[in-house]
Design a protein around this nucleic acid. Structure first.
Length: 312
DNA sequence: AAGAACATCAACCGCTCCAAA
DNA sequence: CTTTGGAGCGGTTGATGTTCT
């Protein structure tokens, strides 16, 4: 590997000083960044444009939220990583005010390790303890969801049309890059989160969902190319060890409303994931306690699950 | 108290993509 | 159609801080 371009030009590398930060911020606030390549000279910086862009986008930009990630953010990262893999920029677009670099670092230093400790492969999001026919139930659900995702990504016409209309209105899909393909199910995930994060108890919202106020036509959402892959949500039952009666009621009411709708397995999987991961009833005391409870709660549920329906 | 080991994260590098010429 | 330069992405590094022995 040869010398870097920055070295050849005698440009500075390494950590930014406060003075450099001040110069960069002052210039961009007055002129905008314009061409990043031309910026360093104009701003009086001995840096390459690339370094300036990185410093601005990852650190100095005013609309950046720094500090510890919230539980909701963690949940979102895990879900999106399961769908998108290491496409950090795509993940970052669904986490306002967080940069791809920050999310990537957080994944590598925190979330990956936690999932590993939980016995979940952070790459495949499958249980490491699952073997052949004795797959864990989480893995079964994860597999079903990933398969559904794959089917959607492969581009059934109906799904593409639905997605395009949902995400872009009537405009054409503009992103053609293979690097950042817009994940089909993410907007569905958003829709689901809108429902499930209210702990599945707000039936009026669900009915609104059912009545297409989310710009989704349920009749299109739930159709699959292969009817044999459909799951009927009415078959799901509850385990009293895992849920409070109140939550059972909420979920069951929700399921009742949905009873006449047959959902594609990935949508059901998202509901399940949200239901499982967003459960914060045990969060009391300071944040660290909540954090520990959060993960131990998930571990408990995974460990106690004796059947698919018992998770619910 | 001191050194080793580990964790964190800002920053860099090489690569790909894409628009303009 | 081909070439070229800018921008952005993901993987990796290394300086610094923290914890462990």
């Amino acid at each position: 590997m040869g010398r870097s371009p920055s070295f050849e030009k005698g440009l500075k590398k390494g950590p930014w000083t406060a003075e450099e930060d001040r110069k960069l911020v002052a210039y961009i606030e007055e002129h905008g960044h314009g061409s990043w390549r031309a910026l360093p000279v104009k701003a009086g910086l001995q840096r390459c444009g690339k370094s300036c862009r990185l410093r601005w986008t990852n650190y100095l930009r005013p609309d950046i939220k720094r500090g510890k990630f919230s539980l909701q953010e963690e949940q979102t990262i895990i879900q999106l990583h399961a769908l998108l893999g290491n496409r950090w920029s795509a993940i970052a677009t669904h986490l306002p005010k967080r940069t791809d670099n920050e999310i990537k670092n957080y994944w590598n230093t925190h979330l990956k390790k936690r999932l590993t400790k939980m016995g979940i492969d952070p790459i495949t999001h499958k249980s490491r303890t699952a073997v052949n026919t004795n797959l864990s139930h989480m893995t079964q659900w994860e597999n079903a969801r990933l398969e559904a995702e794959a089917r959607l990504v492969r581009g059934p016409k109906i799904a593409s049309n639905f997605y395009q209309r949902f995400h872009y209105g009537s405009s054409p899909v503009v992103n053609k890059t293979s690097r950042s393909p817009q994940p089909l199910c993410l907007d569905v995930l958003k829709a689901w989160q809108g429902i499930t994060l209210s702990k599945l108890t707000d039936l009026s919202r669900l009915e609104s969902f059912n009545n297409q106020t989310l710009a989704v036509e349920p009749s299109e959402m739930i159709k699959t190319e292969n009817p044999t892959n459909e799951l009927n949500i009415s078959n799901v039952s509850f385990n009293n060890d895992l849920e409070s009666p109140k939550d059972h009621e909420g979920v069951q009411n929700t399921l009742g409303v949905m009873n006449d709708m047959t959902y594609q397995d990935d949508y059901l999987m998202e509901a399940f994931t949200n239901h499982l991961v967003s459960d914060d009833r045990s969060f009391e005391g300071d944040f660290e306690d909540a954090d520990n409870n959060y993960w131990s709660n998930i571990l408990d549920k995974l460990g106690n699950s004796s059947s698919l329906s018992s998770i619910f």
